[in-house]
Amino acid sequence: MIATALRAHEAAAPGTAPVHKLADRPAKGPVRARTPEAAATGGLAVTVRDLSKSFDGHAVITGLDLHIPAGQFVAVVGRSGCGKSTLLRLILGLEQPSAGRVVLESEAVRPPPKRIMFQEPRLLPWAKVVDNVAVGLGETGTRAERRARALSALGEVGLSDKAANWPATLSGGQRQRVALARALVSRPGLLALDEPLGALDALTRIDMQAMIEGIWRAQGFTALLVTHDVAEAVAMADRILVVENGHIALDVKVEVPRPRRRGDPDLAALEGRILDHLLQNHAPA
């Protein structure tokens, strides 16, 4: 059952990566139906060609090629300092590449926005929860429209009753859910998640993983999750990229059907293999 599409980074020519279509996903179990508006949005496809980035002469990303088809859930794992966060920031345009380029493509006439969820919630402490979510809409539409959409996004993360609260009164997990609602309220085509669950306790983290996965399946955006937690990557992603020394060392497809069960032996085996790889290729200095 485990996908063993192991490909060295050099061989992974862009465009040749097998496209994992959303429709191919097995529809067993409580699969959430896609809403019509979500289906209309679609995801952004990401193509990265010969990407390099260095800070003060120190190379962080070196000649990286990558293609992510629209709607795919990709997890990027690696040791700290391997360049995975930089890769995500480059794809989002938060950093300018030193060489190479990043192309985001959409089939929609008006390409959907790209959004990021940070490791910290980064909520505005002086804005009520609903106004924080409305930040994700920028200045589109009227105030009332923005408020209505923000409220519905809050509903999706199960926090409708906290709309009028100050962020300071929420728990860590709730704040991160508000941040998720803020990221999702504009119906993004690409959602980047930069270790967003790292600071949460284990149970809250599992809840959040299920919530993010559920919303992703309902909305069909492209998801790019950077994490140091291999178990999280294996549980959530269609495909896992292991980044080492600024390039992709391992590109694995996870073909375990959804919804995935915690403790599934296939997932555990895959997790073990990736961990082995990470530990082997890192001789202590």
Binding site: L92, L94, P113, R115, I116, F118, E120, R122, L124, V135, G136, G138, R182
Partner: peptide, 10 residues
């Protein structure tokens, strides 16, 4: 971090 968030969110 909040300023960066504001920029990223357009």
């Amino acid at each position: 971090q909040l300023v960066e968030m504001g920029r990223v969110y357009g």
